[in-house]
Design a protein around this nucleic acid. Sequence first.
DNA 1: GCCGTACTACGATGCCTATCGTATGAACGT
DNA 2: ACGTTCATACGATAGGCATCGTAGTACGGC
Lengths: 123, 123
Amino acid sequence: MSTDTPAAGPVSGARSLPHPAREEIRLAQVLHALADPMRLRIVCALAAAEGELNCADIELPVSKSTCTHHFRVLREHGVIQQFYRGTAKMNGLRRADLEALFPGLIDGVLRAAGLQERRLGEL
Amino acid sequence: MSTDTPAAGPVSGARSLPHPAREEIRLAQVLHALADPMRLRIVCALAAAEGELNCADIELPVSKSTCTHHFRVLREHGVIQQFYRGTAKMNGLRRADLEALFPGLIDGVLRAAGLQERRLGEL
DNA sequence: GCCGTACTACGATGCCTATCGTATGAACGT
DNA sequence: ACGTTCATACGATAGGCATCGTAGTACGGC
């Protein structure tokens, strides 16, 4: 069901996006990737979507270039996977990989983010 | 039994160290504080010690000034508490506060750090 | 009162990063 | 084939940060 072939298959044919392999992912880098309100928002949105999201589906109060930058940071640090589908770039959390490496971590962060958002009204 | 009075009582009398109140602690800042190998090591050591540790009790491959810097970042972001005892400065994890704000987060990070350390031989 | 110890403060440096605007490339629909 | 839409790349900028060395300050012991 085409769940994910992140590092292997160039889905659309031309543009390829480098992803770190599972063993390459480092805790400090994941935490660093998550330690930005904008990126935390992206990750929460992806988690809530439970699937793939278009880049433009996530509204952020920053410019497009900055948005691209944040998505790239998340991808290069192993938090999300990206692939092209036509002109759109789809994004998805790398839940399986993260769960295998750091069980419970992502859920903890997501829950913490939800709690704080409910507590403060914003992230 | 003098467990902790972090924000209130200057224990030793003269030097006071500013700590954020529990409500001031922000998830992104905590993650940022943890997103550094050196600081991650500090936090792991404090968690293992289950109590207070002298600054010098944690061996780090950096200079003393840098060490001070990392401890300050951890304190100002609400991850640890510090107070003076004589000439020594004691450090402790703010487990209760962090657990109240982000239940399970710290344990998840600590476990992830342990797993990665076991996997790679280092942090 | 003096000295040693422990940590801090300050200044410097070089790197990383979050942000932007503009120009470019890739795919889709007509 | 052409234009539109989506995202990228590149260059620039400003701020933050990890690191260091040196000088200074607070506390405890002699």
